[in-house]
Design a binder for these strands. Structure first.
Lengths: 340, 340
DNA sequence: CTGAAAGCGCTAACAT
DNA sequence: ATGTTAGCGCTTTCAG
């Protein structure tokens, strides 16, 4: 058997309690004994058994990340993992572990129920896509420390954080306007894509503030496919007065729009500017590369980690906020900034 | 306090031992008492406390995944996370948990040392990039159940699994040849990129088998960038006798090669076929879409999960093998298969 | 087929 | 500042 706290206590001539206090940096131990114990621990190569600690403390210093992990998800949604990495790093800094699990619509409730009642983890970070009314009820009933990554569609008593899509939209529009473009079009995602909707709100706000009237022909909705980007862009190109800048709600739309533009006789970025949100890997593989408003999802994860640790300390703290801001990634689908 | 095994035992009129045996499906319990106990557990909504189980069993039914998780890694290396998902799903199937951690070159040894001595997890899956001689020594000394994802560069006593890059190379070449192309060029990655090297070996093998002589002008090396793909392709296009098919060791090279081809007067896939390895998200956003030999990294992770669980059962089982095979993804940068 | 009893290694009131 | 003592909830050997 490995060396235990008893061995250390024996050798140091103190009680296990004292050793425990040293392990946990409880300051009521005199420097003399404290350092003596420490040296004994070194000497014996003692390391506290985490399983015993977890058990005695009734806490495992571990946070669980819950989402739905299907095949190909890392390719289709790298953002989720970038967030996960941010989350991990924030937790690691405070010596918390991160475990991940996958649930489906079907097994979500029973799985989470089990996880909560088995006291496997101290807190749970949910991806917004797994959150349901039923889950909300469960979490609230069990008073499980939690935070949701992303803003749920319905009003909720749960804690969540999200990036500020409206602000990102505003940012995109303001930047485009600052470059001298002024016939701004917006190609949105699916009409009930909440992120796209907020982005549009931000765009509209910025445009209105600039005293520009949004031509209703310039507002189109597609989905998240290249094809729909092509189609919508062609629609714009068929107008008598064409827009000179297009804001696409997502990368795929932008890719399609770019394709359609390249098949036209208009030049990007000279005649038409193109800007979109998020920087998917291929945003830099196009020609020209895509100017984007990049959501820092790593930071989102990091903030989620910091938040859940806060909540662990103050269990009735409720967090609901759009925190993470965006950065402009200056690329070549828009004109160069003008110096004045 | 929550309901414990004692409560169940009391209510069912048996000892805690018996309840424990039911929990753990130990078959020496009569069906009668077993089912009675089960119904009591339901009634009381009893769930065994995992922390107590872990402690008593001296095992946590948890596997640790170790790699280096820096910002942007999910975008730059989605494969790693796809593997992670496969790993997770294999473990979840056997009721094992997965926790992840990040190490750096500097803190790797001390961190892993701590993790092992604190008995935090039952087994560790390492990404090959964190493996060093020193780590090998540590793992072997502590007899830590482990598996490495990827084949280490040096001969090792550790267990590892990897995908079969040589076979993938063979596959790519054979497919290209079957389409009627016969002046095959290979643009490799960095010369000490082991994956690229194996892929080339496979390609060479297939070509030789088909009695085709590999023109030495047709063998070029770049790295993992679009630019180097462009440059190498231009080099090929400058030859008197140009290749009619190009195998690129990675997606970025292929992207660059495609770009260079599009700027030439050769058509893809009619005049020149293009094939590469792995399917990055942008492999389907190019025009034409890229034909690839896709390594199923999800499957690699899944196999790693199954392997580590095997090793947990048979601690001196050593696994070293190229397991995961590849699939052809038929896309449009190569001619259509001929029917006969 | 079932139960008694002895841990697993550490923590945390409470006392001194 | 340090020690006493009583758990934390489950597993497991061994006996019946």
């Amino acid at each position: 058997m490995a060396v235990t706290i008893k061995d250390v206590a024996l050798k140091a001539g103190v009680s296990t309690t004292t050793v425990s206090k040293v392990i946990n940096n409880i300051p009521t131990i005199s420097e003399a004994t404290s350092s003596r114990i420490r040296s004994v621990m070194k000497e014996l190569d003692y390391h506290p058994n985490r399983r015993a600690q977890n058990f005695a403390r009734q806490s495992s210093r571990t946070i669980l990340y819950v989402s739905t992990l299907n095949k190909n998800i890392a390719f289709n949604n790298p953002h989720m993992f970038e967030t996960l990495v941010g989350l991990h790093n924030a937790l690691a800094k405070k010596n918390y572990g991160l475990t991940i699990t996958s649930v489906t619509k079907e097994n979500c409730i029973s799985l989470i129920e089990e996880i909560i009642s088995q006291k496997i983890v101290d807190g749970i970070v949910f991806h917004v896509s797994v959150v349901s009314k039923e889950l909300e009820k469960l979490i609230l009933k069990e008073e499980m420390p939690h935070i949701i990554l992303g803003c749920p569609e319905h009003k909720t008593k749960l804690s969540w954080i999200d990036n500020n899509n409206a602000l990102s939209g505003e940012m995109a529009a303001k930047y485009i306007l600052s470059l001298g473009y002024n016939r701004i079009a917006f190609i949105g995602g699916n009409k009930n894509d909440i992120g796209s909707t907020y982005r549009f709100e931000g765009v509209l706000h910025a445009i209105t503030q600039a005293n520009i009237y949004l031509n209703e022909d310039y507002l189109l909705f597609g989905d998240s496919s290249i094809e729909s980007g092509v189609a919508r862009m062609k629609q714009l190109l068929a107008l008598k007065v064409k827009p000179d800048a297009v804001i696409c709600a997502n990368n795929y739309l932008a890719l399609g729009a770019l394709k359609a533009l390249q098949e036209s006789d208009l030049r990007v970025p000279e005649d038409v500017g193109l800007i979109t949100f998020d920087s998917y890997p291929f945003a830099t593989t196009t020609n020209p590369t895509l100017t984007t408003v990049d959501i820092d999802v790593y930071d989102l994860g990091k903030q989620a980690g910091e938040s859940i640790l806060q909540i662990l300390k103050k269990p009735n703290l409720k967090i609901q906020s759009y925190r993470t801001l965006a950065n402009l990634v200056y690329n070549h689908s828009t004109r160069l900034p003008q110096n004045d």
